[in-house]
Simulated assay, not measured.
Amino acid sequence: MSETARSRTGTLTARLRALYEGRSDRAHRFRYALLAFDLLTILFVIATSFSTHGPVVETINTALGVVLAAEFAARLLIARQRLKFLASPWVIADLVAVMSFLAPLAGEGLGFLRVLRTLRLLRAYPLLFRLRKDFAFFRRNEEVIVASINLAVFVFVMTGLVYATQHKVNPQIGNYGDALYFTVTALTTTGFGDITLDGTMGRLISVVVMVCGVTLFLRLAQVLFRPRKVREPCTVCGLELHDADAVHCKHCGEVIRIETEGME
């Protein structure tokens, strides 16, 4: 590689890192835009699961795949340890989702796996920091929101997996709605029995939905019904969560200053 090409690659890498990892307003707007694009992509996959795919849908699929592949290449470029980056389960799931858009014959339903990256983006510290700063509602209810997102993403991913693996072989799974119905009834252990998954793979998916889904549901119930906490790190012992009206840290007794918006 020539010196000029190396210099251009270094400049591009620096600019991309500033967008993906920086804390400027531009970087935050970029990450919010990525999140919005991910959500729109997922909605597109849901909507098209209810209809027969024609040339228009396939063209949009391919266009989305090209955009997603370019975004994936950008993240690969800025990765400091690329082999470790490529070995990450999040990245593998994202790569499968990108390939599903570029190769519809492999199953466009796998595009649902892209929601995993949406969760990864939400859990990234810079975005969480910005959400806390921008939205008072998020600051007050962060644990409930994150637990709800975890449960929703699990339901969404498992529904996508059910749809991707069953809609061509199981007449009971005709669209995303059928897959969602099965996932919710399995997660809540209602089990009406009107829709079942075929084969060993189907039974394994059912087990994962019930075991992991109930765990996430109980986590959401826990944060909903326990006393609300405020995130304000103690400068002495580091304890982060305190009662909303706390004046002193429960661990070390240090005075803490919790910023509020006033009376609710």
Score class of each variant (00 low, 15 high):
residue 56 V to I: 14
residue 238 G to E: 12
residue 32 Y to C: 01
residue 120 R to S: 03
residue 60 I to R: 05
residue 133 K to Q: 10
residue 69 A to Q: 05
residue 194 D to R: 13
residue 256 I to N: 02
residue 249 C to I: 10
residue 259 E to A: 10
residue 86 L to S: 08
residue 199 G to H: 10
residue 248 H to F: 14
residue 118 T to L: 03
residue 109 G to N: 03
residue 82 R to N: 08
residue 227 P to G: 07
residue 18 A to H: 05
residue 52 T to R: 09
residue 169 V to Q: 13
residue 253 G to S: 13
residue 227 P to M: 09
residue 125 Y to M: 10
residue 53 H to S: 02
residue 196 T to P: 06
residue 150 N to E: 07
residue 148 S to F: 09
residue 111 G to C: 06
residue 231 R to Q: 12
residue 2 S to R: 06
residue 157 V to P: 00
residue 60 I to L: 10
residue 29 R to Y: 05
residue 9 T to P: 00
residue 142 E to R: 08
residue 247 V to I: 11
residue 61 N to A: 06
residue 192 F to D: 13
residue 264 E to V: 09
residue 232 E to S: 15
residue 214 V to W: 02
residue 46 I to K: 05
residue 228 R to L: 09
residue 169 V to S: 15
residue 106 A to E: 15
residue 108 E to L: 11
residue 94 D to R: 01
residue 211 V to R: 08
residue 245 D to G: 08
residue 206 S to W: 06
residue 262 G to V: 12
residue 157 V to H: 00
residue 141 N to H: 10
residue 104 P to D: 07
residue 49 S to T: 06
residue 174 G to A: 15
residue 87 A to M: 11
residue 102 L to R: 10
residue 20 Y to V: 02
residue 96 V to P: 01
residue 90 W to S: 00
residue 10 G to D: 14
residue 36 A to G: 13
residue 240 E to D: 10
residue 78 I to D: 04
residue 154 F to G: 04
residue 20 Y to G: 01
residue 186 A to W: 00
residue 10 G to H: 09
residue 152 A to Q: 05
residue 79 A to K: 06
residue 142 E to S: 07
residue 205 I to N: 10
residue 101 F to S: 03
residue 15 R to A: 11
residue 9 T to E: 14
residue 12 L to Y: 02
residue 145 I to Y: 07
residue 18 A to Q: 06
residue 170 N to S: 07
residue 113 L to Q: 00
residue 136 A to H: 12
residue 66 V to H: 11
residue 248 H to Q: 09
residue 15 R to G: 10
residue 210 M to S: 11
residue 20 Y to S: 01
residue 18 A to Y: 05
residue 29 R to G: 03
residue 125 Y to P: 05
residue 70 A to T: 12
residue 56 V to W: 08
residue 163 Y to M: 02
residue 59 T to W: 12
residue 31 R to D: 02
residue 239 L to H: 09
residue 5 A to R: 11
residue 240 E to V: 14
residue 113 L to D: 00
residue 237 C to P: 09
residue 255 V to G: 08
residue 263 M to V: 13
residue 262 G to D: 12
residue 232 E to P: 04
residue 231 R to I: 15
residue 175 N to Q: 07
residue 136 A to S: 14
residue 153 V to D: 01
residue 80 R to N: 08
residue 38 D to Y: 00
residue 243 D to V: 15
residue 211 V to I: 14
residue 181 Y to E: 05
residue 137 F to Q: 06
residue 38 D to M: 02
residue 49 S to D: 06
residue 197 L to G: 07
residue 205 I to D: 08
residue 75 R to T: 09
residue 38 D to W: 00
residue 192 F to R: 15
residue 185 T to W: 09
residue 50 F to S: 06
residue 243 D to A: 15
residue 39 L to V: 06
residue 219 R to P: 00
residue 204 L to Q: 14
residue 83 L to R: 12
residue 256 I to R: 04
residue 229 K to M: 15
residue 238 G to V: 03
residue 60 I to C: 06
residue 259 E to F: 08
residue 224 L to K: 11
residue 160 G to W: 00
residue 257 R to P: 03
residue 47 A to H: 07
residue 22 G to D: 05
residue 41 T to A: 03
residue 125 Y to K: 12
residue 133 K to N: 07
residue 162 V to P: 02
residue 51 S to W: 13
residue 83 L to G: 12
residue 114 R to I: 03
residue 105 L to N: 11
residue 239 L to M: 13
residue 233 P to L: 15
residue 207 V to E: 11
residue 12 L to F: 05
residue 224 L to A: 14
residue 142 E to F: 14
residue 223 V to T: 07
residue 14 A to Q: 07
residue 72 F to T: 08
residue 33 A to N: 10
residue 190 T to G: 06
residue 140 R to L: 15
residue 23 R to A: 08
